[in-house]
Design a protein around this nucleic acid. Structure first.
Lengths: 205, 205
DNA sequence: GCCATGTGACAACATGCGATGTCAGATGCA
DNA sequence: TGCATCTGACATCGCATGTTGTCACATGGC
């Protein structure tokens, strides 16, 4: 519960700021659903508002443009993913840590198919701002994996193409699994991903 | 030179069918340029026609819709790539063959930056038809690599996620290289890609 | 030279979009 | 109760798009 601001008042039990935040969250969730269904380019502001059961006025209350909402949706999904993966890594041997991180990662993707679709497909190459965020996310993931793979930590200004091979492989494995509607059990996918990582690690490539 | 069809005639030295085919090719090249510049969703029919120095009437002479042109452009690029890669594989030891294929692949990408951009970025996730074609292309690439990596040939109806890890890694290496405007020499990229493949092969993952 | 065919510039139309505005009615507070 | 605020449905505007059509002019075959 938030303090009321001057010129605002309670309405149906919540403050102005709370109502606004709830609308914002509803718009993000609606956007994820609509992006997943028809893709970002065809996700009009009107359609997202209808999905969120809000009107256009409330859209522009929280977001200056459609792209702003896209960025917010991407950040929401990305943050949740990193939270889950980082929480799963409870230390131990590198192999165990890799396993834990991969399991948490693929589990999270499996549990939120719409968000996964948006993360891997609908936010890709549609906005420069999101492209930059995606690249940041990949690098963050790679930094987390480097030491576990016996690879030197990558420089911050250039891409380590060897690490990119690893993260890219894991990425495309996830994408293919998603495209087949998560047909195989998560454990099988994690097992394959783990062996993939260990194959690279074994050779100190 | 093609036979004139009834009701057609020579014009500026070429037959009706030839002129039509030349216009079609010009539209495809123009489309690749415009897609690379502003992305497929923002590549209007008008803009492509202007780039090709043709008018809308000639667009609909060769393509029933904007998506038709997208498909044609993708197929053009994809066919050229496979042609180059297959031609480069002149037999020998698996390691040499992998090297030859990778070098041809990354060379071709480097030589045609706009087409590469369209292939990796602008045609991705914008059309179901192209998505299917892309998946076919990946599988064709994977079939070509499987035996060289001591992996069993993948079943035709399901994705081999281990192979997908390899092709996905090579894919993302290429993408990152392209994103930095091919800053490093091709040989360095090929070297990394080769070691990546051999690391997987060594473990018979 | 005549006329069908080819060409290019551009108009026309319906459609959907982002963005902003209007307005009646619901709600909470003094 | 009276009144400022909040809400939702909808109108409105300018603009870009795909697609089809029009029309004057160029070109080539007879």
């Amino acid at each position: 519960m938030t303090e009321n601001v001057k010129g605002q008042r309670e309405y149906r039990g919540s403050s102005g700021a709370d109502r606004m935040r709830e609308r914002r969250e509803r718009l993000i969730e609606a956007a994820i659903a609509v992006y997943a269904e028809r893709g970002y380019p065809k996700a009009s502001v009107r359609a997202i508002c209808k999905e969120a059961k809000l009107t256009e006025r409330y859209f522009y209350e929280s977001f200056a443009s459609g792209e702003d909402l896209l960025v917010a949706a991407f950040e929401t999904i990305s943050d949740e993913l990193f939270e889950v993966v980082d929480a799963a890594d409870s230390g131990g041997e590198p192999e165990q840590r890799i396993h834990a991180r991969l399991r948490a990662y693929y589990d999270a993707l499996h549990q939120r198919p719409s968000a996964t679709r948006v993360f891997f497909i609908d936010t890709v190459n549609v906005s420069k701002r999101v492209d930059v965020l995606f690249e940041h996310a990949i690098r963050r993931f790679e930094r987390g994996m480097a030491e576990l793979l016996d690879m030197p930590a990558p420089a911050s200004d250039t891409v380590d193409l060897r690490l990119r091979g690893v993260s890219g492989g894991l990425h495309q494995i996830a994408l293919a699994w998603m495209r087949e509607d998560f047909a195989r059990p998560t454990t099988e996918v994690v097992e394959i991903a783990l062996r993939f990582c260990l194959a690279i690690r074994g050779t100190g490539m």
